[in-house]
Simulated assay, not measured.
Amino acid sequence: MSRSVLIVLSEFGYWGEELVGPVEVLEAQGYRLTYMTPNGRRPVALPPSLDPDYIDPPLGRSVTTRDMARRAADIDSSSRLDNPLSLSDLIPERPYYSSLNHLRELEEYHRRLASATEDLVASFDALVLVGGSGPIVDLANNERLHEVVLAFAAADKPILAECYGVAVLAFARNLETRESILWGKRVTGHPKEYDYKDGTGFVGVDFNMGPPPYPLEYILRDATGPDGAFIGNVGRELSALVDYPFITARSTPDATLSAELLVRVLEEGLRRYGW
């Protein structure tokens, strides 16, 4: 039976290798891939991720080989990303509490949300959140995406998140308890040591944010709680973890490994790796 995977990308720039890894691994497995962005706009790779001469400041070296730059550019310029699904079209928006008929609107919202997420989850075997700096802008605090993540988790289907895409998991919460779905889980992600001190940029916006607006490590440490853990693996070349249903990848080099772990989760029932 062929499997289907939903891949979510930012409209403000994804890191090339962090899409190449899942695409190449999952397509080699015969999986069907569908792409989605917050508003249905075509995603674009971050220019530094296509440049093998770009030196990653915290690591002090290039993180993109010439071969990977070519493979990432091939995907970025191909037609496969031309018509992504629109998250805003598929998932309703929660009404403001100040709306005039809030109770009725909230009831309607929950009816529409249940139908939309059930249809989406039924169509796919797994969810992938691609990293890069773009997710900081339009994925991390995207309530519609949080509802999709919660629905996949409730359906016991695996979710792979890379780099700053892991922030989506930290912020995906049941509004009754406000507890992160990562509570008690082991995850990896961008550690403080690997964060930029300056130069955080986005596609389509002439703006240098400087450092990232939040230290992801601190957020993940708080979100996982006393019985979970953030595992940065600083100084190790690779960092990818499985604490089912979550597969988390620290950064660019982990894209292929994390996708291979997703395959093992789906095909072999892998439930724990890396901790």
Rank of each mutant, 00 (worst) to 15 (best):
L175V: 07
T34Y: 05
Y97H: 03
P211G: 14
V23L: 13
G165L: 11
I247S: 06
V205G: 03
L139I: 13
V128C: 08
F12L: 01
C163Q: 08
R111Q: 12
V23W: 15
F230R: 11
E11D: 05
V25I: 15
E147W: 04
P215Q: 09
Y164D: 07
G199K: 10
E11H: 04
Y35A: 12
A116K: 06
Y196D: 08
T248K: 05
L261V: 11
V137R: 14
S49Y: 03
L270G: 06
Y35W: 15
D198N: 14
A154I: 00
L100M: 02
E105A: 14
G184N: 10
C163V: 08
V130P: 03
S49M: 05
S78N: 05
E11M: 10
E176S: 12
L6V: 05
P135F: 06
I75T: 03
A122I: 00
G13C: 08
H110L: 13
L90D: 10
V149P: 01
D206G: 10
L129I: 15
Y244R: 06
V205N: 04
T252K: 09
L120D: 01
G16D: 12
A167T: 02
G228V: 07
T65W: 10
H146W: 12
P213Q: 12
A155G: 01
R144P: 00
P191T: 09
L85M: 13
K185V: 03
I181Q: 04
L238I: 12
D138W: 02
F171W: 12
I7L: 14
D53T: 15
S62E: 05
P48L: 02
L261K: 10
D89V: 00
R71I: 08
T117S: 10
D125M: 03
A151H: 06
P22S: 09
A161V: 09
S77M: 07
L90E: 14
L169T: 02
S88T: 07
A126W: 07
P43D: 08
A155Y: 02
Y109H: 14
V168W: 03
R178A: 10
H190C: 15
P52V: 11
S123P: 03
H146V: 00
L19G: 02
S79G: 01
Y31R: 02
E179N: 07
L120R: 06
E107S: 12
E217G: 01
E107V: 10
A172Y: 03
K192D: 14
E107H: 08
T256K: 15
R221T: 11
W183M: 14
R271Y: 00
D156P: 03
L6P: 02
A72T: 04
N233M: 15
L270C: 10
E24M: 05
T252H: 13
M209E: 14
F230D: 09
M36R: 11
V149N: 01
P38N: 11
G235W: 11
D82T: 11
R250C: 11
G235P: 10
H110G: 00
D82H: 10
P48W: 01
N208P: 02
V44F: 07
L139H: 09
S86I: 07
P38L: 03
A126S: 14
R42Y: 07
S4N: 15
